[in-house]
């Protein structure tokens, strides 16, 4: 089959338009750069304002330790997966990377919630609302920077990449929240956390097309 005139003309135009481009760094390096910035920024805020002794106290309980580790792992692995998925030649199986950690996070949080319900732990709605605001307040700036970095790769499926990035941001925000809200979650807490995390993922996915086109 010969090349059609239009394809031929398109190649000529694209070639004429092809200036030098800056190659993207390896996705792991890009993920490490973003996570490093988050670690430095949040480390400073935690050192200045957080109740670290309460956090350390929580970490002595095995279930809570597993929950904290799974929360952080979900955030880290989802961010790595998002950077990998942003490249056109990477397998979609990267989307499975954070799932075991996510399942552990949900299971341990659910277990803590059940234990609290059996023990009759009271729900403080004002405190839950504060958690919701902290989760969103942390996720929005982190999510904006992450979206900018992810969409710089011009992913072929921006919505799924942004959703994975949203999960990563939500996981990290939920981990950071533990420094400021070192209490076991109640059913209301759990629902509010789920709404906040779902909101971050949904907004990331919905806004990705507009950001990708910008």
């Amino acid at each position: 089959m010969t090349m059609s005139d239009t394809t031929d003309q398109l190649i000529a135009r694209l070639s004429a338009d092809a200036g030098p481009v800056h190659r993207l760094r390896h996705p792991l390096m890009r993920a490490a750069a973003w996570l490093g910035c988050v670690a430095i920024g949040s480390g400073g805020i935690i050192a200045a304002f957080a109740d670290t002794s309460a956090f350390i106290g929580r970490a002595h309980d095995v279930r809570q330790m597993v929950e904290l580790t799974a929360t952080l792992a979900t955030g880290l692995l989802a961010v790595v997966a998002a950077f990998e998925m942003s490249l056109p030649d990477r397998s979609r199986a990267w989307a499975l990377l954070p799932l075991p950690a996510l399942a552990t996070w949900l299971a341990t949080t659910g277990l803590g919630c059940l234990q609290g319900w059996i023990a009759g732990t009271p729900t403080d709605l004002a405190e839950s609302t504060e958690c919701f605001l902290i989760l969103l307040g942390t996720s929005i700036p982190l999510g904006l920077v992450l979206s900018w970095m992810l969409l710089h790769a011009k992913p072929l499926a921006p919505a799924s990449v942004a959703a994975m990035g949203g999960l990563g941001v939500a996981g990290i925000a939920a981990f950071l929240l533990q420094f400021f809200h070192p209490f076991d979650v109640t059913v209301i807490d759990l629902a509010i956390h789920a709404v906040a995390i779902g909101l971050v993922i949904a907004v990331s996915a919905l806004s990705s097309r507009k950001l990708a086109a910008a």
């Binding site: 394809t7 398109l10 190649i11 694209l14 092809a18 190659r23 993207l24 490249l87 056109p88 030649d89």
Partner: peptide, 11 residues
């Protein structure tokens, strides 16, 4: 071809 052009920096 258009997509290749758009994402050539990712190779």
């Amino acid at each position: 071809l258009l997509t290749v052009h758009r994402v050539r920096h990712t190779y």
